[in-house]
């Protein structure tokens, strides 16, 4: 059997006494869309940050396409094909939206030989167009609304032409209509294809999200995290009916009351 695409093994991150991620192990296939859910403070964001090397894990390993990438520099990991987005949008506020994406297009992974400024600009524009914010390309990121910044975040990530996309709350702060649009567009991105000059192999995705109903519509598999540990893994239908999940979200007594 070929080496799994992304393999996380026994990953731990302790902040002093607090065990934010405590021995999480899971894997993601090359053509999967995985949802990562869990109550607040379960360690979802920390887990994402550990994979991308923004935080260094206390112990455990992360393997990407059979290669150990644990604790490597973020830029290096991104250039191997894992692109993260952030829960709190972090655009380059003084740069125009187009230039924000251009930065990603300039990374060694996305850069082509003989690229010059015009082609990079056009590729950035294609990423923006795909995310539906091409009309804002010239506006500085500081004047753009939150929903559009969320899309900018995704555009910035896909401009590095990733094989694995780690999306941290892509629907956070979006209106229901925007959420639906974003969900559809992530699904389309996952199928892969050619979007203007931007080529996508159909990246695998790990999506951290709180809007469960919207998430369940688009993902193939769900992993539930609670207090740093993975409690359940399965298809959306299985997870929704799982007792442990309901307990983790709502609490024991309440769930017994409900049943």
């Amino acid at each position: 059997m070929a080496a799994p695409f992304l393999e996380v093994e026994n990953l731990c991150k302790h902040f002093g006494e607090l065990r934010a991620v405590d021995g999480a192990s899971f894997h993601v296939g090359q053509d999967e869309m995985v949802g990562l859910i869990g109550p607040n403070g379960a360690g979802k964001t920390t887990l994402m940050r550990l994979i991308t090397g923004i935080l260094k894990p206390t112990s455990g390993t992360v393997r990407f396409k059979g290669e150990d990438i644990t604790g490597q520099d973020t830029a290096k990991i991104v250039n191997k094909g894992i692109a993260p987005t952030f829960q709190v949008v972090k655009p380059f506020r003084h740069l125009p939206v187009g230039a924000n994406v251009m930065v990603s297009c300039l990374c060694p992974r996305a850069k082509r030989r003989g690229d010059w400024v015009k082609t990079v600009e056009l590729r950035a524009r294609d990423a923006l167009e795909f995310c539906g914010i091409a009309d804002l390309a010239l506006e500085p990121a500081s004047v753009v609304s939150h929903g559009d910044l969320k899309r900018l975040e995704v555009a910035r990530a896909i401009a590095t032409e990733p094989e694995l996309l780690l999306l941290d709350e892509p629907f956070g702060g979006l209106s229901p209509a925007e959420t639906e649009l974003m969900g559809k567009f992530l699904r389309r991105l996952h199928r892969g294809g050619r979007f203007g000059r931007l080529h996508s192999e159909g990246p695998a995705m790990v999506i951290v999200e709180h809007k469960l109903s919207d998430l369940m519509k688009i993902v193939d598999r769900v992993i539930v995290l609670s207090f740093g540990q993975i409690i359940v893994e399965g298809t959306p239908d299985e997870v929704v009916r799982n007792k442990e999940v309901i307990e983790a979200y709502i609490g024991k007594e309440v769930s017994s009351l409900v049943s």
């Binding site: 973020t74 830029a75 991104v78 380059f92 740069l95 992974r109």
Partner: peptide, 24 residues
């Protein structure tokens, strides 16, 4: 194209790294 990258590093180094730029 360095101008854009230098601006990016000043604005937010973590995002620049997450965009695959070797800030070092």
């Amino acid at each position: 194209r360095t101008g854009v990258i230098l601006h990016a590093i000043r604005e937010d180094e973590i995002t620049a790294r997450a965009s695959g730029i070797n800030t070092v």
